[in-house]
Design a binder for these strands. Sequence first.
DNA 1: CCAGAATGGATAGTCAAACTCTCCGTTATG
DNA 2: CATAACGGAGAGTTTGACTATCCATTCTGG
Lengths: 208, 208
Amino acid sequence: MRMAELSAESGVPVATVKFYLREGLLPPGERTSPNQARYSVAHVQRLRLIKALTDVGGLPLASVGVVLSAIDGDETPHRTMGVVQQELAGPAPKVSDAAAEWATERLADLTRSHGWKAHAPEHAAMANLVAALATAKELGHDKLTERLGEYARLAMRVAELDVEVVAGLSSADKIIEAGLIATVLGDRIFAGLRHLAQEQVSRDVLGG
Amino acid sequence: MRMAELSAESGVPVATVKFYLREGLLPPGERTSPNQARYSVAHVQRLRLIKALTDVGGLPLASVGVVLSAIDGDETPHRTMGVVQQELAGPAPKVSDAAAEWATERLADLTRSHGWKAHAPEHAAMANLVAALATAKELGHDKLTERLGEYARLAMRVAELDVEVVAGLSSADKIIEAGLIATVLGDRIFAGLRHLAQEQVSRDVLGG
DNA sequence: CCAGAATGGATAGTCAAACTCTCCGTTATG
DNA sequence: CATAACGGAGAGTTTGACTATCCATTCTGG
């Protein structure tokens, strides 16, 4: 197919497709002459993935580029997912050193008591957790951190489900892509379900 | 206190504080003369809250404005939290009509089988869920939706914890603010815990 | 009391991200 | 073979979130 059809099929405007080609997010089409190219369904899928990562995952295009090269590379699923989570988490917001230290300590307790592996503070999920917990403290909301262990236990249950959903696929490539999609969409889906559930519970507990 | 101290105390640059004042995100200080003002600890707290909403919650300033006027208003906690969730969820990404219809149907099944109240498709969390599920389908990932019921059950457990954390506060104002903070930080904290847990589980199941 | 720093307020400028527009020479097509 | 579409490159646009510069006061330390 050529540009117009690729655009129609994917729902991405022609000008934007050209822009993605320039940025290297979309691989160039196969040349049929010095200045004509043909695109395949792989290009359509790639565009859909880019849309999912930006629209649903909220990733900046620069991160999308990093993620796409990661899944195109031939690293292990584990390493590749590390890159994905790094980009998905984004840069952690800055917080005061004192609060950060307290939060780091609190998280160390948690991982120790749950038998989880310790992580360096540069680890993306870790850095974001530290920032979020530190912010909670700075805002004077300790309740959330007091219950951290209970949240962690439920997070573990969710993670087990996540891995079940992704595991059982045949090839490493499929596991990587499924993992990517499950991570990007999974966060948003769970957040949505949680909000819905909060309304149910708060209706019962706090009253309409 | 005056500008310089307010800035130092909150960690927000003077120019930015002025900008927030102009935008109406921060209420003006108390006048001490026609062109001088004095600020209070309430201003410091407000600035910290704005920082949390933008940095941690990732909200655009326009949404922060809406949220702040909502919590300053005198609506019930339930209505106020509705506004908060609306802004937090943001505009749902657009998806094809066919996929959206399928996702809406799937969600109707879910809410029915869990005995949850049905929601209009304009409902923020609902619209985002529809978009996320529709995207999963468009990307050819059905596994996630097949297990939706299990995720919903866990989301319910998390929501119960959320409400426990917030309930038990004395005044409606405190409940509203705690709810806001719990929602904003809670999503990010749970996502972080989930990522950490995913690594533990995938290490065991998929191997290093 | 007064010189120099700080303040409040207004206007304009900056910067990055993510497109979108306009050309242009070449290629396909009815 | 006229004309519509294409690929490629560069400049322009829009939005969001600041940041910088002025200026006419107002405060403050010596």
